[in-house]
Design a protein around this nucleic acid. Structure first.
Lengths: 105, 105
DNA sequence: CAGCTATTTCGATGGAGATCGAAATTCAAT
DNA sequence: ATTGAATTTCGATCTCCATCGAAATAGCTG
């Protein structure tokens, strides 16, 4: 992963509202959650949520699927996986952070 | 770790310049790197670097130690460790993100 | 003290982000 | 086509951030 891309994803998660959005989606699991549900749960304006979702989507951390008039949002795990991979490989070289990370194939 | 703290650390790492600073410090290892060296290496204004260092320090990701007139900067691994811990525990519940080392096929 | 180097603080500037409400859009059902 | 619900886009505002150069500070050494 390029450092620029990692920075973009970290920045996306680095906003309290967005991090909450993302975590809520993770907890919702594979079923995902409609935008409207997210909005109720977080108590923010629909337009604000839409803005944040776009940022999460543009970095690949979240995906959407249309179902009629509602949009189902889901956490996209592979993106988080590779982000964590970047952090452990590029930013934890000599400490115990790295744990047993490395030998993925 | 509280979600607010995690967001602050993610935001700190979510700027390309700061992520580069942090990675450079990680690569410098336990010896650390003086501010001046960092500045030469990154090619940014000293005042700009000072600003970024403050952000990294205030979130606990970097520490400084005085040695005469120079300030040695070091990556503070425990902070990164707990941040990665937060991400894997809070944000990777059901996928393979959750730290099974090695890719299970 | 005086001078030197390393680093920070100050002040300014340009740009980006978070937020909201209102209006527009999309899609389904009647 | 008309209605109604879900979501986005628009326009505005306000704050925060990144960046720089210049001036100030801190600490060493003679």
């Amino acid at each position: 992963m390029k450092i620029e891309e990692a920075a973009r994803q970290l920045e996306a998660l680095g906003n309290p509202t967005r991090l909450e959005v993302y975590r809520t989606l993770v907890r919702a699991g594979g079923a995902g959650l409609p935008v409207g549900r997210l909005q109720e749960r977080l108590g923010i304006a629909a337009s604000t949520l839409s803005h944040h979702l776009h940022r999460l989507i543009s970095t690949g951390l979240v995906t959407q699927e249309r179902q009629g008039t509602t949009l189902i949002c889901r956490a996209h795990y592979p993106a988080m996986e590779s982000l964590i991979g970047f952090l452990t490989e590029e930013c934890c070289i000599e400490s115990s952070c790295a744990g047993e990370e490395g030998k993925a194939a």
